[in-house]
């Protein structure tokens, strides 16, 4: 499933990141968002959610959440 469907406050392991934009996927990689890493959804709003990757929090929109397969 995608991160957009993930439960809040539960640990997931990223299986894949489906992003064509190579720059963006390289950027996400540097932050620690790549297959094999942990990711946790901290909270969720209508159009975006807050995630914890490594030891930082990021706000991502649903487009991006849908591109992250867990």
């Amino acid at each position: 499933m995608t991160l957009a469907e993930a439960e809040v406050c539960k640990d997931y392991i990223i299986k894949d990141v489906h992003i064509e934009d190579e720059d963006l996927s390289a950027f996400l990689f540097r932050l620690g968002c790549y297959a094999g890493e942990n990711i946790t959804v901290i909270s969720r709003k209508n159009k975006n959610c807050v995630v914890a990757i490594k030891d930082a929090r990021y706000n991502i929109d649903n487009h991006l959440a849908e591109a992250i397969i867990v």
Binding site: I19, D21, L24, L28, N48, V50, A56, R57, Y58, N59, I60, D61, H63, L64, A67
Partner: peptide, 9 residues
């Protein structure tokens, strides 16, 4: 087109 948004909090 899809424009992804990500910002560190």
């Amino acid at each position: 087109r899809k424009s992804f948004f990500i910002i560190e909090l």
